[in-house]
């Protein structure tokens, strides 16, 4: 039960930062398989059954542009972040950094941080 719960919470947590990671990695053009490999090389494993539906969703939301091109004798779909995607990515990065900073205070501060936050000396 606790394993299943942990897995569900982990997936929930991952869902948000996967979007950010994909939008950031697609500053340079990639096709699906190459994108997955690039993310994996940077420590972020992503299942293909999660990646492709995510790419389609981001494209339908106007955050990605895509183009079919032939490479290595096969048709591949290349993705790149769109202008709207770049704006959203910057805003999401700010948001993520803000959350990260807050979490650091919460997780590392202990009781002293609580006193600091409530203004008690």
């Amino acid at each position: 039960m606790s394993d299943e719960l942990l897995e569900n919470l982990r997936l929930e947590l991952r869902r948000g930062y996967l979007v950010l990671a994909v939008l950031t990695q697609l500053r340079t053009e990639h096709y699906g398989y190459a994108l997955r490999k690039a993310l994996a090389e940077r420590g972020l494993e992503i299942d293909e059954n999660t990646l492709y539906p995510l790419l389609r969703r981001l494209e339908s939301q106007g955050l990605l542009d895509s183009e079919w091109r032939e490479e290595d004798k096969r048709n591949k779909r290349f993705y790149r972040v769109s202008a709207a995607g770049q704006t959203i990515r910057a805003q999401l990065l700010d948001e993520w950094e803000g959350i990260n900073a807050s979490l650091r205070v919460i997780t590392q501060g202990g009781p002293e941080a609580d006193l600091h936050l409530t203004g008690v000396k």
């Binding site: 699906g32 398989y33 997955r36 293909e48 492709y52 096969r74 591949k76």
Partner: peptide, 17 residues
């Protein structure tokens, strides 16, 4: 509507792998 598009991409991914 999306079938051919999805299958082409999936096919490329499987073959690349």
């Amino acid at each position: 509507r999306q079938k051919d598009d999805i299958l082409s991409e999936l096919s490329d991914h499987i073959h690349s792998r």
